[in-house]
Design a protein around this nucleic acid. Structure first.
Lengths: 256, 256
DNA sequence: CGCGATTTGTGCACGTCTTCACAAGCGCCT
DNA sequence: AGGCGCTTGTGAAGACGTGCACAAATCGCG
C-alpha cells in the first residue's frame, strides 16, 4: 500500500474526503464493525480480512466489503484491512473523534441504569447532565452527576454544548421534554419512551422500545410454534381455510 | 361488513386464518400500531381511519394500509378500522393472547431497571425469573422476584415454560448465557450485551445496543454540522478534494 | 332509491438493500 | 522475475420495501 498514512485522518491532517453520503443501512452497521474492530485490536490483530471481520460483526462478507467501500478503499487485496486504520476511519465518519455531550432526561428506573452505564464513556460519549421533573429526585447524585431540574436545561445545555438528548421519562412526559430539548438546540434524540415524538424537520429521533422488541420476538415464537404444529401442511391450503387449526395455539414448549 | 364477528379470533373460535407470513418490516411495525390502538381505545375511539392511525403511529397511511391488508381485510371502506377488532387481530398475530414468560439474566445496572420496568406486564409479558452468576446478587429481591443462580435455569425454565430470554450481562458472559438459554429450549433471545451471539438455526436473536444507537445519531449530527458548514458547496467538488475542509469539525451548536 | 362523500385495498413504478460472482490487485515463494 | 493463491472492490441481478394514485366498497343524506 502506497499510502499508509491516514488518507482521511480526523485530526489536523488536511486531506479529509469530506462525508460521503452513506446508505442508511450502512450507517447502522458501522458501529457494529467498530466494536468488532476494537475487539480485534485488543486481541493483537493488525489486519483482518473481510471474512473475519464479517464473522465478528455477524454479517455477510460481501455486505461488509460494500459497506466499507463506501468509505473509500482502505483494504489491501490479498491481505485484508488494517485494523487501526479502519478504526480511525469509521470513528471519523461517525463523528466520534470528539466526545459528544449527552443530556439524559428522566432518572427513573431506566434512566438510573443509563446514567450508571459505563459503556458510553468508552464509545465516544459523555453524559453531561441528568434532569428530571420530580422535585424529590432533584439533587440526587448518580455516578458522580447531580440530578437537576428540567427547567435548568437551557443553561446547562449551553454550558456543556449538549448535542444529543436521551429521553427516559414516562410516555406522557416525553413530547414535552422533546420540545424542550429541541428548543435548546438539540438535533438528535434517543427516545426510550413508548410513544411517537413529533419534532421539526432536521431533528433526528431514534426510538428504542423494549416491549416492541419482545413483541417482535413473540411473533416469531408464535410462528415457530404454528409451524411445528403443522409439519406437512403446504402453506397454500392455510390461507383462507375455515376448518379450524386451533392447534397452533397449544404448542408452546418448542423443539427442546 | 358481512362478517363482523372476529373472523380470526384468538381464543376458542374455530376459524383461525393461521399465520400469514408477513414481511419482516410489517412485523416490526405492528407493535407500534398496537400501542397506538390501545391509546385510541382509551380515549374512546371505536373506529379509526388509516390516516388517523398512521399519524398516531408515526408512519405513512399507505404503508399502514398495506401492512394491515396482510392480516386480512378488517377495515370498512368509508368508515375505517374497528379499534377493538384490530387490537384483537394484531395481538393474535403477534402471539400475545397468552402472557409469555420471560427469563432475565444479569441483574446489574440495566438488568435491575428491566426487572423493575412495569411496561412489560401491560404488553403481554411476564418476567418469570431473574438470574445472575454473581453470588453476592443471589437472593436479592427485585420487584417481588428473587434473584437465583444461573445454574438453576433448567428447573425454573421448565416450571415456568420460559419462551423468551433476555440477556443483560456484560459482553464476556453473554455467549455462555445464550448457550445455556438455548440448552433449556429458549428460542427467542433479546440481547442487551454489546456483542454478537452465535446460536443454532431456529433461534431468533434481537439485539439492542445503546451505544450503537448513539453512534448512529452521532453520524447524522456530524453530517448535519458538515452541511451547515458548507452551505453552497455542491457536493461533487468535495469528493476527492485535498484542500482541507477542517471546518466541518468545529461547528457544533447547530441551527438555533 | 340513488348519489356523493369518504376511506379501504392494491396495482404499479421506483428506490434501496442484499447477494453472487468475478476481475483486478497484492504479496509471497520459488 | 514470474507465477500462484488469496482478498478486495464492484457490476449486475434479484429481493424487498415504499409511496402514489385510483378503483371498489360502504355509509349517510336527501
Amino acid at each position: 500500500m502506497s499510502q499508509h498514512r491516514h488518507p482521511g485522518a480526523p485530526g489536523r491532517a488536511g486531506a479529509v474526503p469530506a462525508l460521503p453520503d452513506l446508505p442508511e443501512a450502512t450507517v447502522a452497521r458501522l458501529p457494529e464493525y467498530l466494536r468488532a474492530l476494537h475487539n480485534l485490536a485488543e486481541t493483537g490483530h493488525e489486519t483482518i480480512s473481510s471474512e473475519g471481520l464479517a464473522n465478528a460483526a455477524g454479517v455477510n462478507s460481501a455486505k461488509l466489503r460494500k459497506d466499507l467501500s463506501h468509505l473509500g478503499s482502505y483494504g489491501t487485496r490479498g491481505v485484508g484491512y488494517d485494523v487501526a486504520l479502519l478504526v480511525e476511519q469509521i470513528e471519523y465518519v461517525l463523528g466520534l473523534t470528539q466526545r459528544r455531550a449527552v443530556a439524559l432526561v428522566g432518572v427513573g428506573n431506566l434512566g438510573h441504569a443509563l446514567a450508571g452505564y459505563d459503556g458510553f464513556a468508552g464509545r465516544g460519549f459523555r453524559i453531561a447532565a441528568l434532569f428530571d421533573a420530580d422535585p424529590r429526585r432533584i439533587g440526587e447524585e448518580i455516578n458522580g452527576l447531580v440530578v437537576r431540574h428540567i427547567d435548568e436545561l437551557p443553561e446547562v445545555a449551553a454550558a456543556e454544548a449538549v448535542a444529543i438528548g436521551v429521553i427516559a421519562t414516562p410516555a406522557p412526559a416525553a413530547q414535552r421534554v422533546a420540545d424542550q430539548l429541541v428548543a435548546v438546540g438539540v438535533t438528535s434524540i434517543l427516545n426510550f419512551a413508548p410513544c411517537v415524538l413529533s419534532v421539526p424537520e432536521g431533528v433526528d429521533v431514534r426510538k428504542v422500545d423494549l416491549a416492541i422488541e419482545l413483541q417482535i420476538l413473540s411473533f416469531h415464537e408464535h410462528r415457530k410454534a404454528a409451524l411445528t404444529a403443522l409439519p406437512a401442511a403446504g402453506g397454500s391450503a392455510l390461507t383462507a381455510l375455515p376448518g379450524g387449526f386451533a392447534v397452533t395455539e397449544s404448542q408452546e414448549a418448542i423443539g427442546t
